[in-house]
Amino acid sequence: MTDTDTGTFDRDTRYISDRITTDVPPGSAPVGAKVGEMTWPVEAGRYHLAGARACPWAHRAIIARALMGLDDVISLGLAGPTHDEHSWTFDLDPGGKDPVLGIERLQEAYFNRVPDYPLGITVPAMVDIPTVAVVTNDFDQLSIDLATQWGAFANEDAPELYADAQRDEIEAINARVYPDLNNGVYQAGFATSQSAYDDAYQRVFATLAWLEEHLANRRYLVGDSITLADIRLYATLVRFDPVYHGHFKCNRQTISSMPVLSAYLRDLYQTPGFGDTTDIDQIKEHYYVVHTNVNPTQIVPHGPELSWLMAPHGREDLP
Rank of each mutant, 00 (worst) to 15 (best):
D3H: 10
T4G: 00
T6K: 05
Y15H: 08
V24N: 06
V24C: 09
P25Y: 04
G32T: 08
G36Y: 10
T39W: 04
V42C: 04
A44F: 13
G45M: 02
Y47F: 15
A50D: 08
A52T: 10
C55A: 11
P56N: 09
A58T: 02
A64Q: 08
A64M: 06
R65I: 06
A66Q: 15
L67T: 03
L70T: 07
D72S: 15
V73W: 04
L76I: 07
L78F: 06
T82A: 03
H83Y: 15
S87P: 07
S87Y: 09
D91N: 13
D91P: 03
L92K: 14
G95K: 07
G95D: 09
D98M: 02
I103A: 06
A109P: 02
F111T: 11
N112P: 01
N112G: 03
P115F: 12
P115G: 12
P115K: 14
Y117E: 02
L119R: 10
G120E: 04
P124N: 11
A125T: 06
M126P: 01
D128L: 02
A133F: 12
N137L: 00
D138W: 10
F139P: 11
D140Y: 10
I144N: 11
Q149W: 03
F153D: 07
F153H: 15
A154W: 05
E156F: 05
A158T: 05
D164N: 14
R167C: 12
I170A: 07
A175Y: 03
R176K: 14
P179Y: 04
L181Q: 13
N182F: 00
N183K: 01
Q187G: 11
Q187S: 12
A188M: 10
F190K: 13
A191T: 13
Q194E: 10
S195F: 08
A196K: 05
Y197M: 00
Y197H: 11
D199C: 03
Q202P: 00
L208M: 14
W210Y: 14
E212K: 09
E213C: 11
H214G: 04
L228F: 06
L228H: 05
A229T: 07
I231P: 05
Y234K: 05
T236F: 08
L237F: 03
P242A: 14
V243G: 02
V243H: 01
V243I: 14
Y244N: 03
K249P: 04
N251Y: 03
N251M: 06
N251L: 07
R252I: 00
M258Y: 08
P259R: 15
A263M: 06
D267L: 15
Y269K: 04
Q270G: 13
D279F: 03
I280R: 00
E285F: 09
Y287F: 14
V290I: 03
T292R: 13
N293K: 15
N295W: 09
N295C: 11
P296F: 11
T297C: 11
I299N: 12
P301R: 07
G303V: 14
P304G: 10
W308A: 08
M310T: 15
P312V: 06
H313I: 01
R315L: 12
E316H: 14
L318Y: 10
